[in-house]
Structure formats: C-alpha cells, structure tokens
Design a protein around this nucleic acid. Structure first.
Lengths: 216, 216
DNA sequence: TTGCCATGTGGCAGTTCGTGCCATATGTTT
DNA sequence: AAACATATGGCACGAACTGCCACATGGCAA
C-alpha cells in the first residue's frame, strides 16, 4: 500500500470509527464461526464480542450471512477489478480466466493472500445454511461480469456481441470455477495452489465437448 | 395416467390423507404467494388456509421455501428421469439437452404443462428472498446429473471420463439453462415456447467460444 | 468555548420462522 | 373391542430481524 497516504486525511474520525467497528465485527464473527460453526454462533454473541449492541450489528450488516460472506465479496471485487484491466478486445472467457488468475495469484505470488481467503471461506463452505447465500453472490457477480462485456459495446470489436452471449460467458466461467472450488473442498488438500491448478483444468476443458453433430 | 391403477389399492387411508393434506398445503400456499407475494405470506396463513396447525405445516415442509419450490423440484425430477432414458453412450451435453427438451415439451407438445410450471414459478422468481434456495436446488440437481455420467462407468464408452468432467458438463448445462430462464423472465414474453427457444439458443452457443490460442 | 445540527448508537417491543415436548386424536391390526 | 403405531395440535421457547424513540457523539459555525 504505497499510495493511498495522500488521501488518508480525508477520512474523518467518524468514518475511521465506523471502519474499525465494521472490521471488528467481521473479525469477531469469523473467529466465532471458526470456533463454534456458523449456525450455532448467534448474532448476540458476535455483537457482544465486538462490543456493540445487536441493533447496531444490523446497521452494519443486513443479516448474519452478510458478515460471513464479506471475504467472498471482497474476492469478487478483486476479480472484477482485474477483469476491468484486461484489454477490451480480449475474448470474454480469456479475459475472465486471466482476471481470476490475477486476483488469485499475481497479487500474492506465494499464495499467502489466497490462503487468507480460503481459510476464512473453507469453514463457511461447510455450513450448508450459507450455500444459498453464496450462490446469490455468484449470480450477482456473474451479472456484473456480463455487464463488462456488453458495455464495451464497440460494434467493430470481435467479442462484445449480445447480452445473452455475455451472460453465457460469465456464467459458464463461474460454473467452471465453482466446480473447481467444490472439487478442491471435497479433496483433502488445503493448499491453495491445488485450487488454482484445479481451476485451470476446469477452465481449459470448458469448451472441449463440442458435439460434432447436433441432432436438432 | 393409464397405468398406475393396479397399484392404487396399496395406498392406505392414512397415506391418502397425507397426500391430500400435502397437496392442499401446496395449493393454498401458491395461491397466497400469487395473491400477496412470498414474503408477506405467513406460514400461519398457509396453515389456516389448509386447515392444519402451524406445527403440522412444518411436519410436511421443513421450511417455507420448500413448499414454494415444490414445483421446481418436480421439474427437476422430471428432467432427471428423462436423462436416465437417454442412451448411455450419448455425450453428456447432448443427453442433457435432449432430456430437458423431453421434460419441457415432449410431455406436453402444446406447452400447456410447461406453462403450468412457469405460472407457479414466475411469481416466485421475483421473490429475491427465494433466490438462494433456488440456487441450492440447482446445485443439488447438478450433482445428481453428474452422478448419472460417472455411474455409467464403462471404460470403453467414449464419454464417462472423470468426475470433474461430469460435473463440468452438468453445471455448464445448468448455467446455460439459467441464463435462458433469466433472459426469458426479463423479457416481456409469457409464452413458454419462447423459453424453450431461448434455452436452445443458449445450449447451442454453449461451446462456441473456443479460444483458438490459449495463452497458458 | 458554546451551541446547534447531523448522525451513530442502544434499548425495547413486536413479528416471523422454526423446534422440542407432551397430550390427544385418528388409523391400523389382532 | 383392545392395543398399538402414527399423525396432529398446542404451548413454550430460541433466534433473526425491524420499527420506533431516546440518547450520545462528532462536526461545524458564531
């Protein structure tokens, strides 16, 4: 974080307090989730640990799921940022593949940062209560991915095409990543590098089954 | 329903009552959802309409979502059954495409049966509260699809392959269908035939973006 | 410093979903 | 008709949220 110093003064005391409170809630919540599991951890306990009232907790997070999935959201934002840095004429699947690799590995070549996320998200992935909420985030992310491709809507570019194509690229991509994540979770590996490897396999074989002859 | 008569006697009075109660709950619930929306319809109201206690409602359905998505589950079972009728040596995506067409159209060439489902599911699709639960069903269905491909595990068949491939086929397929369903819902069409057409477009263009040269 | 205004916070009452427990009612079998 | 299995209802309870109002705290101007 070399830059960012210059704009630090713009943050008032109020805003700093809010940031700290928010982060404190997240930290306490994830510590409790890790220790006791998501379901058995009450909002009351989180609020007590973060030294705020339950009412205030719900002012920072709309529900218990939101605080649990904050790291997932952060990862999504990271990927989206990486996607926006790709050249506009790149085919969607190529750009997405590169973007997720950037977000996962470039930012931390040793995989430590990715591990930071997986550590947070692995125990949560086992909470079946959260599965629906996770999927919701993924769908929302897919829509934002798709928007990137139709927005760069120059008619001469080879890729942009229709909304349907953009959505298809985004959601097949996310399906591949999900398959990889689920396979990695099901395996006994805890090494983030294995996750990256699995994801690459899935992304590479995304389009291999092009049926030679369709029976319409 | 020509057959099925022979096994009717096997259903005792108790079982008949339970079936009727269950169906009554579903009917009342969906009528209320249609009239007032999912969120504002309380379990208490459903139970009252079906003339059972709230406690009994929760013996038939684990939660409010389950009764709302009962038609979706039924459609999933239909598709799975259709999939099992496909020849074992068919490529996964081909088989899935044919299966969903069977489930959607063959069983009712005029599209009336499909409309029956869309009528039930369209108002529910607008309830964002249910989005997560819907996704949960889809993931569960995808796993069952994938199982069909690895179970038929004859090493000489050209398709079965690894678990990863099976999952990829299932989930990219479901992603395409979802994109189609969402596009159809976003459009102003209420004609199920348009849904089928959109789904076919999505399924056909599933694998078209095979990037000629990957930059590994 | 003083005072005013905007905003963040806590507490409380209330709604809804969902569960455990036990008594009662209904169907089934001998 | 008695004995058994199972379905139902009612109640108490916990936990997630929400609306409302009073209070406290930070920001800003005279």
């Amino acid at each position: 974080m070399v830059r960012g110093v210059s704009e630090k003064q713009a943050e008032s005391l109020r805003e700093r307090k809010k940031r700290r409170t928010r982060q404190s809630i997240i930290d306490v919540a994830h510590a409790l989730f890790h220790a006791n599991g998501y379901d058995t951890t009450t909002v009351e306990a989180i609020a007590a640990g973060a030294e705020v009232s339950v009412r205030t907790f719900f002012r920072y997070f709309a529900n218990k799921e939101e605080v649990a999935l904050a790291p997932l959201d952060e990862m999504g934002e990271l990927t989206l940022t990486a996607l926006r840095r790709r050249p506009a004429d790149e085919p969607p699947l190529t750009a997405l593949r590169a973007a997720v690799l950037d977000a996962w590995t470039i930012m931390s070549p040793d995989g430590e940062s990715l591990r930071h996320y997986t550590d947070h998200l692995l125990p949560i992935g086992n909470a079946s209560t959260l599965a629906g909420a996770v999927q919701n985030r993924i769908v929302a992310l897919g829509d934002r991915f798709a928007l990137e491709f139709v927005e760069g809507d120059d008619p001469d570019g080879p890729q942009p095409r229709t909304d349907l194509d953009a959505s298809l690229a985004a959601f097949t991509f996310l399906a591949a990543v999900q398959v990889a994540v689920r396979a990695w979770c099901a395996s006994d590996s805890t090494d983030p590098a294995d996750l990256v490897a699995t994801a690459l396999i899935c992304l590479d074989s995304l389009a291999i089954e092009r049926n030679p002859a369709h029976r319409a």
